[in-house]
Each structure stands twice: as structure tokens, then as C-alpha cells.
Nucleic acid binder design. Structure first.
Lengths: 343, 343
DNA sequence: CTGTTAGCGCCTTCAA
DNA sequence: TTGAAGGCGCTAACAG
């Protein structure tokens, strides 16, 4: 398991190790023959430069820290895929961390990642409290917030990327309106979440413009899970209702609605249209075919990496320039929304 | 962005930096007062040891490389979650890499990870060709193969973890048999995959024992996707068939079957039972509720980490002891399998 | 063109 | 109990 170092190569080649170093970095100040010869020896001996030693000098590791609440969650795994793939294309590796939705854990992770000298950190969908708790690190390490940038006040000391949630809510609602639904139920609004805030505001604006009714069912829990969607929908179905469509605040909530509707004997979309938000892959599964608002995860991911590298690559003594990038949502029509028939 | 080092602390405290080092490592050979004082200064100045420098000396980075084909695939994202969480609990970080099912990419990744001096690598579900191509690294870095250990011949130079796929096939088939299905279609068998080989063999054995019929529909493509499941099922439904149940080689294939059945107007489970294999989270979604064979991903993941750390932590000069761990599958009953009614 | 030297941040002898 | 010195693998001046 002993790894071969630059010294071993130097000894074999009968040159100083500085020469080896030069040969490997394709320095111009070295004869072509020695370079070729040394490279050959390296290949033969299976030499591989020790990135750590190099990083110690350059102060760059080419690794990015990625903190997601839970990588097994479809949304984050799709985001992580795009981030990793794109970062690698740009020469960076990704250190993956699950925060388990825990503020203390996020703080620990920042410390850990800092100890590992990561060049930057992408923090996904933090709660307000979490964000406040790690703000102290922003001056130490370039950071980009993923998913929270229609925040007020705008977080300082870091860049941020997110969907235009307001536009998303507006677009979704407009779509329903266009289908003839004039009484819609917005299900799963979570107070204390600026993301939800914006989505709902957008939907409200569209409803107001059209003079349509928008009933809101709030999610009292802290998480937009299928279970909470199910519970919310159950109580919705248990009482008489006038809405002809449900706009769920997230896809996972919509899944719960699907389940509850099934059990209550209401057919989707024949009896009730259903629109989600996120466009997670499972929305495209057979028998689900959920119409939804697309977060365009790949765009978000690449923008996050771009902003981070922009922060990292800026000339050493220039003051950091933080920016935010807002991504436009898109509508994905599948099978759960149909025109409202007025008989 | 300048980070505070041990020297800065030494200067502030007015001691040599060896003393600071000792204080931080809780060395006994130092007075309690100096230690307290130094620790206080470190906390105040926001000092964080540079793991890189430490690793350069210790030859240990406490990071593990994880190579999955595609983290956005539900199966791998669930596995990655368990691996990362468990590894962290045991003091290790995870560097995530997507191989995109590409042999060359896997080779590059090994090189990359080796350069970063990872302490070990977990390689998920490699194809035969890929495995051969990276076998050369096994003597350089502790490696565990995830998902391929009922291989023949057993790969040498590394440890391995996988499900007892033979038992899984057997268990699933026995379940169907127990439900009264005596004519089953095994859909999606992929030649050249030892995993599929074993699953099918297990199912065959159970069928033979019971004297039941087992028709095999082979998947000619290289991937078990929903699309290929859909295509396979379509052709199945387009001809008359005698089977009363389908045993899909993977959950994703089963999803395609669901879709095709829907379109062909065959009701599941009333007209045809359907059993999957993997237990991906989407199998539990409303309207899907797929009965399936559970791979017990968490057990697999933790076993993989255990075996890897066992390899890493072994006393320096002891010869490596490779092992393999076979996990028992479990049956998950949901809604897609019902007893066969003989009228 | 090539070798020598110092040093990145830290730990670990060896002395004092 | 504390300080001085060497070295982990590599790069970057500075000589030659």
C-alpha cells in the first residue's frame, strides 16, 4: 500500500525531484527528452501526485462541500446529481453531507468541511434558523445558498440561487384558471417558509387578477411530506367543498392528495384536478402522471456551481462580489389537470 | 479569507507552536492551565486545524470515495444516504462520484480519488468490464464492491457486499406460489448480469420444486429501466398469455409493466399479480403500492462501510483480509399481489 | 536546462 | 513541562 512519491521517481531517473516536478507540470524550462523519460517512468511505476501536498501549498483543494438535508429525497438527489456532474466537468469534486434537517449538524458540517479546506460550500434549502447559525462562516469560506433567495432581508456575505417561486405560484394558478377552474384550493402552505410564502403570494395574485376563489389549507407541521399531504387532503375530503382543483405546494404533498382522493373515491382528474410543484421524477411515473410546476433543477444546480466558482476564482485581493440568480419555473402538463366543465 | 494557523495561536499565546499542538491533542504532558488558556485562544480566534497538513503526516484523510452510477437513481440515492450517514457516524466523510455507467469514467475516478488520498473506495454495481478495468487499483487502495458478490469467480483483492439474490428470487417466487400462482412470467432477465443470473436461478428453483411454469422474458437492452419494462410488457400483453403473475426483475421494470397493463386494460392485481425486486421508495407511493423483494439497502450500506473500515483499520503490516457479506432479502407485501382464484 | 533550498501547516522525536 | 528541529510530498524561487 506504500505509494510511490516524487522522490522515488527522482531516484530512479537519477535527477533531482524538482526536475520531476517540472516534468509533470509540463514546465517549458526542461528538455523534451528528460520530460518524456520521466513521464514514462511515472507511468510505469504508477506514480500519482499527492493532491494533499499540492493543496497545502496552493491553498486550493478543488473540492466543494455540498450539504443537503437528505440525499435519499428525490429532489435533492436530482440536484446533487447535476451539481456533482457539472462541478466535475469544471474540475471540482464534491464532498457530500446530509444535514438531516438539523441546525447543529449543519454547523458541525461547516466546521468539518472547513477543516478539510474545501474551496467552497453549497448549502441546500436551509431553514432560517440554520442559515443564521452558519452565517458566521461566510467570511471564511465562499458559500452559496441553494433555494432561498427570495429572502427578505437578502442574506449577505454569500451568493444565492433559487427558483422564482412567486412566478411559479403565479404560473401554476394561471394554468388552472386557463382550464376554467375558478375555485381552487391551495394545499400545504407552510408558514415560516419564505419559499411557501412566495408560491402562495404568486397564486393569490393570479387568482385576484381573475377574480377567482383561492382557499388555503395550511400545513401545521414542519415538513412537506406525503403523509402530511395525505392528512390535509383527508380532512379536505371529509367536508363538503366547492373547489374543482387542488394546487399542492409541493409534489410530495400532491402524492398524499392522490392517495386520499383514491380512498375517498374522488377521481383525479375527472372529479378534481391536481397540480403539484417541484417536478420530481416520480411525478412522471405510471398511474401518477402529475401535472406540476418545474423547478428546473439542473439549471438551479449549474447556476449554484457557477456562482460558487465565480466567488472562488476571483482575484485574491478583490472584494467578493455576491450575486443571486433567479431561475424561471416551467409548467409541465401531464394527466392530473383537465378543463373544468361547467354543466 | 486568511485562515488562522497554529503559529498565529502560538504567537498570541507566547508559546512555541509545539505546545499549541500538544494542547490541542490533549496531550498529558502539558500543564492544565496552559492547555485551558490555549484552547480558549483557539476558540476565540476561530482556529481550526488544517486536516490536510495532518493527513500529510498521518497518511490518513478520513475520507471515503463512493462511486455510484447515478445518484439521482432512487436506489443509489437511498444507498448513498445510508453510507454517508453511517460513515460519518464512524468518523469518515464521503466524496461522491457519479460514474454515469461509464467504464473509463470509473477508471478516471479511481485515479482522482487516489490522488486525493482517500482511505478507501466503495464501488457500486459495476459491470464486469468495469470491475476488471479497476482491479489494478485494489492493491493500492482498500476497496469494497457493492452489489456484486455472488460473482464467479469471486473477485480477489477486495471485499464485497451484496444481497443474496438467489434467495431473493427464490423468496419472491415462493410467495407467488403460496398465493396459488402456478404459471408465472419472469420479466426483464438480463443476460451478462450475475445479479440477474442469480435472481432468475432462485426463482427457477422455487418453480421447479413446486412443478410450476416459469416463462422468461429477456431484456435485450443493457439497462433495467421503466421504459424497457414498458416495452417488454407491451409485447407480453399483445399476445395471448397463460401466466397469472409477473415477477419483474427490478422495481423499475415493474413500473413499466404497470403502465403497459394500464394501457392494455389489464387490472393489477385483479387480472394479474405483479411482484417487483429492490424495494425502492417509489414502490410505496399511492396508486403504485408495489409488492416487492426488499434489498435491505441500509444493511447493505452499513456492511459495506464496515468491511471497508475493517480493511483500513487493520494493523499496518498485517496482510489484508478480504471478506464478503451476503445480506438476506425480505419480502414486502403491498397491493399488487393477490391470491390466484381458480374458478 | 537542472539542482538546491525553503516552506505550506502540522506532528513527533529529542533535548533542555 | 516546554522548545527546537526534522519531515510528510510537493512547488517555487533562486542559483548554477
Amino acid at each position: 500500500m506504500k505509494r510511490v512519491t516524487i522522490k522515488d521517481i527522482a531516484k530512479i531517473a537519477g535527477v533531482s525531484y524538482a526536475t520531476v516536478s517540472r516534468a509533470l507540470s509540463d514546465s517549458p524550462e526542461i528538455s523534451k527528452e528528460t520530460r518524456e523519460r520521466i513521464k514514462e517512468i511515472c507511468a510505469r511505476e504508477g506514480y500519482r501526485p499527492n493532491t494533499l501536498a499540492r493543496s497545502l501549498i496552493s491553498n486550493r483543494t478543488n473540492v466543494l462541500g455540498l450539504i443537503v438535508p437528505d440525499i435519499s429525497n428525490a429532489f435533492y438527489s436530482e440536484v446533487a446529481f447535476s451539481i456533482e456532474t457539472y462541478a466535475r466537468k469544471r474540475g471540482y469534486n464534491v464532498m457530500l453531507c446530509n444535514s438531516l434537517y438539523d441546525t447543529q449538524q449543519v454547523d458541525d458540517l461547516f466546521n468539518f468541511l472547513l477543516g478539510h479546506q474545501v474551496d467552497g460550500i453549497i448549502l441546500c434549502n436551509s431553514r432560517d434558523r440554520t442559515r443564521d447559525s452558519v452565517a458566521k462562516y461566510f467570511q471564511t469560506v465562499p458559500t452559496v445558498l441553494f433555494g432561498d433567495c427570495n429572502l427578505d432581508p437578502v442574506p449577505s456575505g454569500c451568493s444565492a440561487v433559487c427558483l422564482d417561486n412567486g412566478l411559479g405560484g403565479y404560473t401554476g394558478m394561471r394554468y388552472l384558471l386557463g382550464l376554467g377552474h375558478t375555485d381552487v384550493c391551495y394545499l400545504g402552505y407552510r408558514a415560516n417558509s419564505s419559499t411557501h410564502e412566495h408560491r402562495l403570494a404568486g397564486a393569490r395574485r393570479a387568482a385576484a387578477e381573475a377574480g377567482a376563489a383561492l382557499h388555503v389549507i395550511e400545513n401545521p407541521t414542519d415538513f412537506s411530506t406525503t403523509e402530511s399531504g395525505y392528512a390535509l387532503a383527508q380532512s379536505f375530503f371529509s367536508a363538503p367543498y366547492s373547489s374543482t382543483a387542488i394546487f399542492a405546494a409541493t409534489d410530495s404533498l400532491a402524492l398524499g392528495v392522490l392517495q386520499a382522493a383514491d380512498e375517498a373515491g374522488v377521481r383525479i382528474p375527472e372529479d378534481l384536478s391536481l397540480l403539484g410543484f417541484d417536478n420530481c421524477f416520480y411525478g412522471d411515473l405510471p398511474k401518477i402522471k402529475l401535472s406540476t410546476v418545474d423547478q428546473c433543477k439542473q439549471k438551479l444546480a449549474e447556476a449554484a456551481v457557477d456562482l460558487l466558482l465565480q466567488l472562488i476564482d476571483r482575484p485574491a485581493e478583490e472584494p467578493a462580489e455576491f450575486s443571486r440568480r433567479i431561475i424561471r419555473p416551467a409548467l409541465v402538463e401531464r394527466a392530473t389537470c383537465i378543463p373544468h366543465r361547467t354543466e
